[in-house]
Design a protein around this nucleic acid. Structure first.
Lengths: 196, 196
DNA sequence: CGTCTATTTGAATGTACTCAAAAGCGGTGG
DNA sequence: CCACCGCTTTTGAGTACATTCAAATAGACG
């Protein structure tokens, strides 16, 4: 199955609308396949995030570096997600974030201008966008809720329940940063969790 | 200026599209004015959030009660925001949140089904929704970033800078909960801030 | 096998929390 | 108009949880 077939499946499933051959030709004409090797950067702090990329294969992290030089992971991304700093992407402002491939990445990427011009006329694409934005808003709200009112241990349990695949795919120090914890604290939480 | 005029101004400004008299008639026909007194609930935990309400006047808080009986404020809302638990609203599932008026509220409310049927054909409304969802996603991402990687003091400074109106309108114990802090800690942070 | 990185463990520190109580403030009724 | 009541905010003391720093162990990769 080609990269585009993966994408066609995804959009049809999410939108509930079948794509015509014409639709598919529009996508193949404008979505640009791109490969990144592990540790390569999709976006660097200070640059404008011109593209959003659909992840066909691989994984990435979006992180910020604070004044003390500590990295904080805001987002971990896997297959079937769109990769971008959306603030920078929509507003075309310099990004405060870095996006780095954690595994070799295969993307289908496109600019917002191209989306507006070529993809927005396709109903399945518009419907897909709706669903994505809804899911994204809900997921963020839940994570925010967890960050504000849960203890470190509850946040970890939440991750184990809701995103078990993260533990398969990402090293623990990345998970720790994603949860807003030091690696040592996560290690101790996991040790305790074994007992119960 | 009537409640609807406030809304018409808002939607025209956000969408960049003028409303026709026909458009306005659709809105007045389907957006239902609703008043809530201070301390009344717009939504109770366990209920489905059937309506979203445009806030013409007043303020509200969205909060969760944990097992220990502690309240955690997820969102503080003022004029020109839409009030709802969007997870419950879109999926029609029971909500985990309560939404309570902190000041007398004047709303224009509507169900998602009505939006789909009557409002979605109006281009200005669709454009407005786009902008709102984008802003909401960006704001949530920034807050998440702050919650994960900022200290309590940095989060407070952030609020002072980005949402100074919150300090005018909400009591400090609400602000504390919104920042994920105990009221005592916020009090001490503010005392320290005076020195510098 | 050796090097580099990730993970775990230990000890000391720090930040924010809890509990308790005092002070401040606003509204209400006498 | 003032006294009282309820609620918010502040202050103090002790505690808990997570962090930092340092070092040891374990794993992955060439």
């Amino acid at each position: 199955m080609s990269n585009f077939d993966v994408f066609f499946d995804y959009i049809q499933k999410l939108s509930g609308i079948m794509l015509s051959e014409d639709d598919k030709r529009v996508f193949t004409a404008h979505l640009k396949p791109k490969k990144l090797r592990k540790r390569q950067y999709f976006l660097q702090e200070g640059d404008v995030c011109k593209y959003t990329g659909f992840i066909v294969k691989g994984s990435a992290r979006t992180f910020r570096v604070d004044e003390k030089g500590h990295e904080h992971i805001l987002k971990l991304s896997l297959e079937d997600w769109w990769l971008a700093d959306f603030e920078s992407y929509y507003h075309l402002t310099p990004s405060r974030y870095n996006i780095e491939a954690l595994e070799d990445l295969e993307l289908l990427q496109i600019t917002n201008a191209q989306v507006e011009e070529f993809l927005s006329p396709i109903p399945a694409f518009v419907a897909m966008q709706e669903v994505i934005k809804q899911n994204y808003a809900i997921a963020n709200q839940n994570r925010l809720q967890a960050a504000i009112s849960y203890t470190a241990e509850e946040r970890y349990d939440d991750l184990v329940t809701n995103y078990p695949q993260f533990l398969q795919r990402f090293p623990l120090n990345m998970i720790a940063s994603y949860l807003g914890l030091s690696p040592e604290t996560l290690s101790r939480i996991r040790k305790n969790a074994l007992k119960s």
